[in-house]
Nucleic acid binder design. Structure first.
Length: 205
DNA sequence: TGCCAGGCCCTCTTTAGGGCCTT
């Protein structure tokens, strides 16, 4: 079994170090390329949402007024993920909110993070850009729900990851593109990955 | 007072700067 937890946060901004907080979290469990479970929750961290964020995400202060507390939502999310490796598009962003929100309630966040942005830059250098929506459209993957809502974006990231795993098997003959292989690919330089995929189709492990 | 992310990656590079990507 190779289970991964694909996560996406909606937040009040881009930096938890500057006081930004999560407003919604969604997690999709992916097993061998198939979605097997989902978790989604708005969360009330007791902060106001800037107007431009409401315009971007559709999440309003009124919606959060009746939402679970951030502490409750993050505790539930942590239980849902357990020790599974995690995946996100631009993982540095979601990882810092995952760690910051869990640190507030004293829960460790040791999970490794696979980054679909780093992988896409290595596997699809010809893409016009590497935004999540662009990559989903480029590979004709389904858009489910409203963009910039956590569950829709997590589902798209999961679909993108499953597509990349299929491509690694079919185009580059990587027999088992699981977590360890993905982490190795994203930690190599782009040039090293291109050489690896071109010359050593069976040796990535 | 004014400003405030940060890691990755490319290039007119490496004694640096700027675009990308996430909200």
């Amino acid at each position: 079994m190779t289970r991964l937890a694909v996560i996406d946060f909606e937040t009040t901004g881009i930096s938890p170090g500057q006081g930004d907080r999560a407003t919604e979290v969604a997690i999709v469990l992916l097993e061998d390329g198939q979605v097997v479970d989902r978790f989604q929750s708005l969360m009330n961290a007791g902060v106001r949402i800037p107007g431009f964020i409401t315009q971007l995400t559709g999440i309003s202060n009124a919606m959060l007024a009746t939402a679970p507390s951030a502490a409750q939502a993050m505790a539930d999310a942590s239980r849902f993920v357990g020790p599974l490796p995690m995946v996100a598009h631009n993982a540095a962003f979601d990882r810092k909110f995952w760690q910051a929100e869990l640190a507030r309630i004293g829960i460790p966040a040791p999970q490794p993070y696979v980054c679909t942005l780093l992988l896409a830059r290595r596997l699809y250098p010809q893409a016009p850009n590497h935004k999540l929506g662009t990559l989903v459209d480029l590979h004709r993957l389904p858009r489910t729900g409203q963009a910039h809502r956590a569950l829709a974006d997590a589902e798209m990231a999961a679909a993108l990851l499953a597509h990349m795993q299929r491509d690694l098997r079919q185009r580059w003959n990587v027999a088992a593109p699981h977590c360890d292989v993905l982490l190795k690919l994203q930690s190599c330089t782009k040039a090293a990955v291109a050489k690896l995929l071109a010359t050593a189709k069976h040796s990535i492990a």
